[in-house]
Nucleic acid binder design. Structure first.
Lengths: 276, 276
DNA sequence: AACGATAGGTCCACGATATGGACTTCAATA
DNA sequence: TATTGAAGTCCATATCGTGGACCTATCGTT
């Protein structure tokens, strides 16, 4: 993360604290070690630790006394549930994830777009014993990187997708070197098919499939996805999986439409500074 | 809130930022004005504003451009969903809230205990036109203050409840003056009946009823509750409402038991400093 | 339309506060 | 029992955050 000094505006440690919080989110249920957080945050060890203590004292983080790993605290859950009134999609989508996992036997996910990132909100495992553990709740990837992010990218208006690719080519190439040359083709494929397919591009042998969820206003903010080992996502099973995805996506879309009495505000998180 | 300087340990502004975040949580969906946040936090206006900007830049808060009110941002929702893997009760309890609201026609709530506080996680309104708006998602009250908090207090082991009352008498008296003398009686009543009843003690005319949810390990962490205008909670309707509550509580408890393959860690959020 | 009152927002000199290099402690591996 | 790597802590220093003072916008009132 490392700080661009320009973005510190008298709130350095506030920003640092909040970024740490986000890193804890990415660490998910397992948690993260102090060393890992130091590395990822670019902070010094004492600073990192001090901020973690503050997070812990406020209930926003916890440290496992035996493993010493840090993870999100209950306070964050409580706040998140309050925020869910506004941003929530889980109420209409979580049980679809569960059903997908049950019916397919593989891992199913709910992912949402958040600016240029795609965040995995929920993962549910099926019963099949060979499982891909490449994606878990809290993981974040750039649009396009993985089946879910690919579905979301492909569902964007073409102009928007183009400009995203142009703007983020560098970042994509850095984080996912193998991906960039393939992306335009994958996006086209996904558009034609109606769902995306990731044939082990990011992690060999880990395949994925995803379909975007369109909100009542037409915007795309989330997707359902599946992940499995290569052998479980061959052409023979593809239509079956796609049909299951399609059915659940349709269900979620209906539920979204029904409850959109008060239309969800979906404004971008970027802020324009008030100028003098 | 105001700061006990002793608790600042080189993380003043981190703590301040996180407390602000919590205040935003309490403000719920409506949001809070800068002035309100300044008042509640005890911070100076510039400091408050600066920290809010930091929160906004990190996506953890948003400001409505027309009303200028601040509220929780989408990032908090995302983090909360990740934390839900660990602390979540909503997956097994939210639809009970919905059903209660539908069947009773009144407002139904899910509240959880968090240390000495009880946080309202969700509110769902029924169709009856006279509604109590005394409680909304994000609101926090001390154990004992209101139907839900009362049910949770009454469900505690007797010794624990006693010691809580002893320790927090002052705080209770300060925030809820009318309540304290009545509390012991109310708690006893609730224990005998199996559910709590608040006959407009905190807000005249706003009545409430609640029943605690017991986890598989026997601990009590949450409750379902109902609120209505006085006339809708008279003895004639009481058994009916209590039965509905009991049915949903039982359902939630069953679901909790079923999914407790990996038993939910429910450790307290307080931290013991590592001593040299 | 001029006024006062209330709230949102910002500036910047000062000093309290957060910083990180250096250190200690502990557990696991060799 | 050395050795490595990670967790955790101390404290002198200067950087970063602070809040009094000020500006502006938007009301309701006369």
């Amino acid at each position: 993360m490392d700080f661009d000094p320009a973005e510190a505006f008298g709130a350095q440690s506030a920003i640092r604290t909040l970024r740490l919080l986000r890193l804890l989110g990415e660490a998910g249920t397992e948690g993260a070690s102090l060393a890992a957080l130091v590395r990822q945050s670019g902070l010094s060890k004492p600073t990192c630790r001090r901020l973690l203590i503050a997070l812990i004292e406020e209930g926003m983080a916890v440290q496992d006394p035996t493993t010493r790993l840090y993870s999100l605290g209950r306070e964050i859950y409580l706040l998140g549930m309050v925020a869910a009134d506004r941003y929530g999609i889980h109420r209409v989508a979580l049980d679809s994830v569960t059903r997908l996992a049950q019916k397919t036997g593989d891992a199913a996910f709910l992912q949402v777009r958040h600016g240029e990132e795609v965040v995995c909100l929920a993962r549910e495992d099926g019963t099949f014993p060979l499982r891909s553990h490449v994606l878990k709740a809290g993981d974040r990837h750039l649009l396009g990187a993985g089946a879910g992010p690919l579905a979301l990218l492909a569902a964007l208006p073409e102009a928007e997708a183009e400009s995203y690719l142009a703007t983020h080519a560098r970042a994509l190439a850095e984080r996912y070197p193998a991906l960039v040359p393939l992306l335009p083709g994958l996006v086209r494929e996904a558009r034609e098919r109606g769902y995306s397919l990731n044939r082990g591009i990011l992690f060999p042998g880990s395949w994925g499939m995803a379909m975007a969820i369109r909100g009542p206003s037409g915007g795309v903010e989330a997707c359902l996805s599946l992940a499995a080992v290569e052998s479980r996502m061959q052409p023979d099973r593809e239509p079956e999986l796609a049909a299951l995805l399609a059915a659940e996506v349709q269900l979620v879309e209906q539920r979204l439409a029904r409850e959109s009495g008060p239309p969800t505000p979906l404004t971008s998180p970027t802020r324009t500074r008030n100028l003098p």
